[in-house]
C-alpha cells in the first residue's frame, strides 16, 4: 500500500508498504531516517520514540498505515540547520551518551518534557523518562543532561 505523511516538515510518499509494518520500519527502511532506533519492537525500551501529531509515542507500535496524513517529528527533526537542539547539546556535554542507542528516544522524550514543564523535579524527570531504557549510563548523567537542558532553556528565555 501507499502511505503519505509529513516527517520533520517534509511530505513523504512511500510505496509498497506492507500492511502489518510499523512506522519505525517505514521511517528507517523506506524514508532514510535511521535516527529512531529499533531495540525491542515491543514498546519496552523507548528508543524508537517519535512525535506523532505532537504526542510522543513508540514508533514500533504504530502501524505505518496509521501514520497516513499524520505529522511526525523524529530525532532528526530536533536540530536546526546549524546548531544542535539545546537538549542534544546538553546530552553531549553532560556525558549522557555512551553507546548512544537509547539517545534518540531520550532526546524526543526530554524535548517533550521540557515543552510541558520548564523546571521539572527529579521525580517528574524519572516519570517522564520511565519508558526509555539505557543499558550504559546508569541514568545519573541523563538526569544531569535534562537539568542542564532545562536551565539552558530558562537562561535563553530571560
Amino acid at each position: 500500500m501507499r502511505v503519505k505523511c509529513t516527517v520533520n516538515g517534509e511530505k513523504h510518499e512511500i510505496d509498497d508498504v506492507w500492511e502489518g509494518e510499523s512506522l519505525l520500519y517505514a521511517l528507517r527502511e523506506r524514508m532514510g531516517l535511521p535516527g529512531s532506533k529499533n531495540a525491542c519492537e515491543q514498546g519496552e525500551c523507548g528508543s524508537c520514540t517519535v512525535y506523532l501529531d505532537q504526542t510522543p509515542v513508540c514508533a514500533c507500535l504504530v502501524a505505518a498505515g496509521q501514520a497516513q496524513d499524520r505529522d511526525i517529528v523524529t530525532v532528526e527533526g530536533l536540530a536546526g540547520e546549524e546548531k544542535l537542539h539545546p537538549v542534544q547539546q546538553a546530552f553531549l556535554e553532560a556525558g549522557a551518551v555512551q553507546c548512544g542507542f537509547c539517545t534518540p528516544g531520550l532526546l524526543v522524550a526530554t524535548h517533550d518534557l521540557l515543552e510541558r514543564e520548564e523546571q521539572p523535579s527529579d521525580p517528574e524527570i524519572r516519570e517522564a523518562l520511565a519508558g526509555n531504557l539505557c543499558r550504559c549510563t546508569g541514568y545519573e548523567k541523563i538526569l544531569d543532561a535534562v537539568k542542564l537542558a532545562a536551565s539552558r532553556k530558562a537562561e535563553a528565555a530571560t
Binding site: G20, A63, Q66
Partner: peptide, 22 residues
C-alpha cells in the same frame, strides 16, 4: 486502536490477520 497490544503481536509474528481495521 493504539496498537500497543496489536503491534507487538504483528512485530513478533504471533498474528497475521487477513485485515487490519484502523
Amino acid at each position: 486502536a493504539g496498537g500497543t497490544d496489536v503491534m507487538v503481536e504483528l512485530n513478533f509474528d504471533v498474528k497475521r490477520p487477513p485485515f487490519l481495521l484502523d
